[in-house]
Amino acid sequence: MSAVATGPVATGRNLGARIVDVFTSPKSGPVLVTGVLFLLMFAVGGVRYRGFLSGQVFLNLFIDNAYLIVLAIGMTFVILTGGIDLSVGAVVALSTIIAARLLQAGWSPGVVILLILAITSALGLLVGLMIHVFEVQPFIATLAAMFLARGLCYIIAKESITIDNPFFVSMANVRIPLGYRLSITPSVIIALLALAVAVWVLQYTRFGRTTYAIGGSEQSGMLMGLPTSRTKVLVYVISGFCSGLAGVLYAFYTLSGYALTAVGTELDAIAAVVIGGTLLTGGYGFVLGSALGVLVLGLIQTILSFEGSLSSWWTKIFIGALLLVFIILQKVLTSRRT
């Protein structure tokens, strides 16, 4: 704390110092580490395995994880406010099962999708109100929502229902060519659109900035006249909506509805958000980082599948280890600042 008027430290600082600054900022540090990690993993994969360094391997990351990207978007909003949403996996399952059941009953796909989005948003609204009005901890409120959603799944259908609706089947099978024998699915486009909207909302709207403000200090945000109450409820609505949308994409992907599907997906979503550089205590993070986090998770799986002999448990262990590294990284970066 030197004199105020002596001018900024910024004048004439060199590039190296600036790079160090960017990497040690709690805002951009973790996400940059993730980016570097992603590139490293891709490079290592490319060196080790034949056919790894192909565009389609990269695009498959999106195809296989489109629903997870959408989930991570909603989770980012929630975690940015310092909350958490444990219900997303169960809500995905609920969405798939509603879709399967109603399509089985002959409903039109458009109506089904809209209904799912309405139901899951409403569930998010209930959770948000419980958290804001009744001051229930997010962890517990979303836990209740998780129980409710899973329970409803079982009530609707115990067994797995196959979806044979032509629209859903076509969404699962259509490939949109990108040239050079590369292609993506419509789900990828939906996920990327959702991502674009989320980026815009978080960066360019007062609602988005208030989301960050709540994570920084809810009280300060309130004293600054920002709409913290409304925002705090809305992030859970968004998370509910994203879970519903992710559920629809998941139904496109698996063409079935099943009560026991997507168990533990909430952990994947949380891990993606954290690895993507969003602070679990809220206030810092980017939704693009979360998407990058999803890609890192996807890449781990891809590498393991290329490795062949390694099995799925390594995924969990790697994810846990990455979580640990990033949580400690966050701790170090934020404690330096305060």
Partner: peptide
């Protein structure tokens, strides 16, 4: 009011802390 314990948002930029609540807008966004 400027409180003793600075009631601003350390996790946002200086510009936002000065302007948020009456931020200039362009094409519907900040």
């Amino acid at each position: 009011t400027v409180y003793q314990e600075v009631n601003l948002l350390g996790n946002l930029t200086v510009a936002e802390n000065v302007m948020l609540g009456r931020e200039p807008r362009r094409r519907g966004g900040i």
